[in-house]
Nucleic acid binder design. Sequence first.
DNA 1: AGACTAGCATAAAACATGCG
DNA 2: CGCATGTTTTATGCTAGTCT
Length: 497
Amino acid sequence: MSDFSAEETHDRDPNVADSMELESSSSTRFNSGHTDHSTVPDHAAKRRKTVFSPEELEILNELWGKGMKQYGTPESKRLLEQAVTYTGKDVGTIKRWIDNKKGSTRKTVGGKKQQKQQKPTMRQRTAHNIFLSQRLSEGIPLPQAHLEYKTLKRENGDALRLLQAEAKQAKAITIQELSDKDKRLQAQTLIKNLKEMACKFKECGLEMAVLLFHKEDGVSVIGTPKGRDFLKDQDEKSALSLQFVKAVNDGNVPSTASASSKSQLAKEVRSMLNEKYVAAGNKGKFPYKTYSAEEGGITVHGLPEGTSVRHIASLGKEGLQRILQEQDKITVEVHSTPANSTSTAGTSSTTGATSTSSEPAPQTPAAVPNPSSPGASSTSARRATAPHPGPEEILLAIQDGFVLPLEDNAADNVGGGEEKCKRKGKGNGRRKTRKGKTVKGKGKADTYHPVEALLDKRVNNSQTEYLVHWAGYDVSDSSWEPEHYIPQSIRDHFEEH
DNA sequence: AGACTAGCATAAAACATGCG
DNA sequence: CGCATGTTTTATGCTAGTCT
């Protein structure tokens, strides 16, 4: 993956951030740093960082120089024991110090620390900043440096003018002025900020997705888990990213008049249906949900033979084109509606079916199920009455999630979706081994996880299996599951398409 | 202008995991 | 268990914005 890889969001847990805040304000931030474990009993369960004093570091470095670079050999064990005695730290702490020392040594070349990538600053430095920076690097405490700068200002001498001249020269850098390498660094910082924003959006109950395109690194996605999955899905199914790349490269957005792509054709069909619906004397948009659910009340006349607008998304390019070609013949008729439908109970005219999508309906609230209200029961009801779900049905189904039981080896997926805004398969969390086996955490039988879609079917050892795309997970995480684990309704839906 | 402070950047300690 | 490697957490230096 590219340097701009943005598939995952690595955000600091806000709870962790809070605890850090509390900790730093109440403990040793401005102290010399030697943390006394015994004075913080309420944090006993929490990891405390050991801060070695300069004297202790001197001892450790000296022993390091004598060969304390391992802890397995008799000689290194002897040195390790000395380190424990001299510093008073436990063996584990010293071992970790050795490990980290080795790690930091590896990061240096020929005893010289590797040049850190200098991040460009976008802000204008002031004489005050420059002076403080200089004095702090000389080891002068901040308050004293402030006082010194005060004196400097009072004196208004050459020293101050020098600083002011330096500040004038050190003008803020604009992004355009940066080298390609620094632009890349800047972009990475922006991506990091975006990822953090995505997490904050999620905490506010908002889903978001952002497509990024870089001429060398290609397209990447940033957003909340659902937002990313949505864009990935679009990416694969309707070549959204290709359109995006083309638009960027061409310097314009794809023409809506081209009508070459399937999604564009589908859009035109939907738009045409909306127009026909209004032409029939109704307000708002074509009540697609009601129509798709075959709840009655709406008929579309004049459709070309063999076509239907009940599930536009599943129509082929050819079917969509035929509908558009025949659109002059197409009319929408709205009948009086059944009592349990979404339209006005008391209205009997042909204009009685009111759009449920955009217009606030003046009927009793109980007559109109809220399409956005969560709950498995409402979804089940929709599923039961909608053998051919329309686009909205499918979206709702994806949001609510179909469920099916998992085997032990698949149960690792359980509960992962919501937490993906934070860590995902990295660091200290559950990881997969290089052989792909899950090594930590035992799954439970009869646990459930939402299914987004069935992607494929096969016969394995005379048993039929389906390739399951798990909701909230990448397509690459899909797994083959035996058919008896998958509810009939989902399998039927797969077979139909 | 000076004081104060939020938040970023960084170093290093702590920890997790895989492999022999 | 020892070691290598990589990630997370913690402490603190530093910058730049805000307030008075």
